[in-house]
Amino acid sequence: LELTLRVGDKTWHFKDVDEEFVRHLEELLKRGAHEREIEEIIREWLR
């Protein structure tokens, strides 16, 4: 999967994204996660 995600003024483009990561992001967005929380999840995933 490829994913382009825009949060606030930042845009990330990922290739070979894990479906579990996408589901986790979807859940965060559904519950109205704040920009900082989403950025933290992305940084963790990139490690």
Rank of each mutant, 00 (worst) to 15 (best):
K15W: 08
L3F: 12
H34G: 13
E44H: 05
T11G: 01
L1E: 13
I42W: 11
L1V: 09
L3N: 02
E26R: 11
E19Y: 14
V17H: 11
I41S: 09
H13G: 02
E37Y: 12
I38H: 01
K15P: 05
R36T: 13
E39R: 04
V7W: 06
V7Y: 07
V17T: 15
E26C: 05
T11E: 12
R47Q: 14
G32F: 05
E39P: 01
K10W: 07
L46D: 08
G32R: 00
R23I: 09
K15F: 08
R43H: 14
D16H: 13
I41D: 04
I42C: 00
K30Y: 11
D16F: 13
V7S: 02
L29F: 08
K30I: 10
V17W: 04
I42D: 00
H24K: 12
H13I: 11
T4K: 07
I41A: 13
E39D: 10
H24T: 13
V7P: 00
R6P: 04
A33P: 03
E20I: 12
D9G: 08
I38C: 02
V7E: 01
R47D: 12
K30L: 11
R47A: 15
D9M: 05
E39G: 05
I41M: 14
E44T: 03
R47L: 13
E20S: 13
T11N: 04
L46V: 09
D16A: 15
K15N: 09
E44Q: 09
W45K: 03
F14L: 14
R6D: 12
D16M: 15
E26N: 09
V17N: 08
L28D: 02
R43P: 01
R6A: 14
E35C: 03
F21A: 03
T11Y: 09
L29S: 06
E40Q: 11
D9C: 04
F21T: 04
T11M: 10
D16Y: 14
A33I: 10
K15C: 02
L29N: 04
R43Q: 14
W12K: 00
V22E: 02
I41W: 13
W45G: 02
W45C: 01
K15H: 09
E20L: 13
D16Q: 13
E2N: 09
R6Y: 04
L1P: 12
R31M: 13
G32H: 07
E27P: 01
R31F: 10
H34L: 10
V22D: 01
V22M: 06
R36C: 06
E37W: 06
W45H: 14
A33V: 13
E27Y: 12
H34R: 08
E26T: 09
L5S: 00
E40R: 12
E27I: 08
H34Y: 07
R6T: 15
I38T: 01
E19S: 14
A33K: 08
E39C: 04
A33E: 07
G8W: 02
G8H: 03
L29G: 04
K10N: 10
F14M: 04
H24C: 03
D9K: 05
I38L: 07
E44G: 05
D18W: 02
E2C: 05
T4N: 06
R43A: 12
E26A: 10
E35T: 10
F14E: 00
E27G: 10
F21K: 05
G32W: 03
D18L: 01
V17K: 13
E40F: 09
I41R: 09
K15T: 08
L29C: 07
E44I: 05
L3G: 01
I38P: 01
E27A: 12
A33D: 06
D18R: 04
K15V: 07
W45N: 03
F14R: 00
G32S: 05
V17G: 15
L46T: 05
D18S: 11
A33M: 11
K30C: 07
W12A: 00
I38E: 01
E26D: 08
F14N: 00
L25V: 08
L5R: 00
L46R: 04
E19R: 15
E26G: 09
F21N: 02
W45D: 01
L46Y: 11
L1H: 15
V7L: 12
T11Q: 06
R43N: 15
K10M: 09
H24I: 12
H34I: 08
K30E: 12
K15I: 06
L5A: 01
H13A: 04
H24M: 12
V17S: 14
K30D: 10
H24Q: 12
W45T: 03
V7I: 11
H13Y: 15
L1Q: 14
R6L: 14
I38V: 11
L25K: 00
D16S: 14
T11R: 02
E40Y: 08
L28F: 05
H13M: 05
W45L: 06
H34S: 14
R47Y: 10
H24N: 11
G32V: 04
E19L: 15
D9W: 02
L46H: 07
R43F: 11
V17C: 04
K15G: 03
K15A: 06
F21G: 02
G8F: 03
V17A: 13
